[in-house]
């Protein structure tokens, strides 16, 4: 290729990618833009990105006070943290047993993990709903957390990683006097940090964003996680008062977007691995 051709090709590449990129980002830009504008400007047909009169403070204040948005966010943090912690506590030892301990029934057990991996959560919603009702945890944090405390994907991912750790390391640890459980915490998990990180991202992203399950088991705003919260807020704001609503959406989306920008590579690797289960 000649030099001018190269420059032309590069220009075309950037032109196309910038166009598709701005189309992809348009909803985000529009969201932030509306969240800054006063109601009057929403209806003006001359659209601008930035408002003529800044209304950001009012919109965000209304979003944070009228709807219990901080509460939703706190719920999201509590639920995601509890789920992730329990998942790791339950899945890592199981994955270690499947990868490094020889016991009768290991294959059968791995078969159950694979079956669990196969079943989409929505299919199980009904019996789990009944289970939560039966346990009396309907409309509590427990209902949001309990169905997810074991993650077949987590077991699968950790098992893959643990299997790649040489047996000699496990043997050395046993000789050094570590119990099986301390081998998991002190040796296996620290050696599998990429897997832990990838799994944490998958877990937090999917539960922060989940709507289906919270919609079923949570009725009071007190326990609503962010996604359900913002939908409830939208339904309450029946009018076209988009300012506070978009401010709310921005607040809900922001934590993950900021984390994503900070740790792009990990997010992409983690979420890709997560969808390849």
């Amino acid at each position: 290729m000649t030099l001018p051709m190269k420059i032309l090709a590069g220009a075309v590449r950037h032109a196309i990618l910038l166009t598709t990129g701005s189309l992809v980002l348009a909803p985000f830009v529009w969201m932030v833009s509306l969240s800054l504008k006063p109601p009057a400007e929403l209806f003006s047909s001359s659209f601008t990105l930035l408002p003529q009169h800044w209304f950001a403070v009012e919109n965000y204040a209304r979003a944070l006070t009228e709807a219990p948005l901080p509460r939703y966010m706190l719920n999201g943090v509590i639920v995601c943290a509890a789920i992730l912690l329990l998942q790791i506590m339950i899945c890592a030892p199981a994955a270690y047993a499947l990868a490094k301990v020889r016991f009768a029934g290991r294959q059968v057990m791995f078969g159950f993990v694979l079956i669990g991996l196969l079943i989409p959560h929505q299919v199980l919603a009904l019996p789990l709903f009944i289970l939560c009702y039966g346990l009396g945890i309907f409309n509590t944090y427990a209902a949001l957390i309990f169905p997810f405390v074991v993650s077949p994907f987590g077991i699968f991912l950790f098992r893959q990683f643990f299997m790649s750790i040489p047996d000699d390391i496990v043997h050395a640890a046993r000789l050094d006097g570590l119990s099986e459980l301390s081998i998991v915490w002190r040796i296996m998990l620290p050696m599998s940090l990429p897997a832990v990180l990838a799994f944490s991202i998958v877990s937090v992203v999917s539960h922060w964003n989940d709507l289906f399950w919270p919609l079923l088991v949570v009725r009071s705003q007190e326990f609503m996680p962010p996604s359900l919260g913002i939908v409830t807020f939208a339904n309450a704001e029946a009018g076209n008062d988009y300012g506070p609503l978009m401010a709310g959406a921005t607040v809900v989306v922001a934590p993950l977007v900021i984390s994503f920008l900070a740790a792009q590579r990990w997010f992409i690797e983690g979420l890709t691995a997560g969808s390849i289960k």
Binding site: V24, N209, P226, S227, M246, A249, V253
Partner: peptide, 22 residues
């Protein structure tokens, strides 16, 4: 890559509300 990947990891519930506005 980051720009095009962004929607995949944001809350579709929140973004659906934005799409409604759009």
């Amino acid at each position: 890559r980051a720009v095009h990947f962004l929607p995949f990891m944001t809350s579709l519930a929140a973004m659906a509300i934005v799409w409604e506005a759009l």
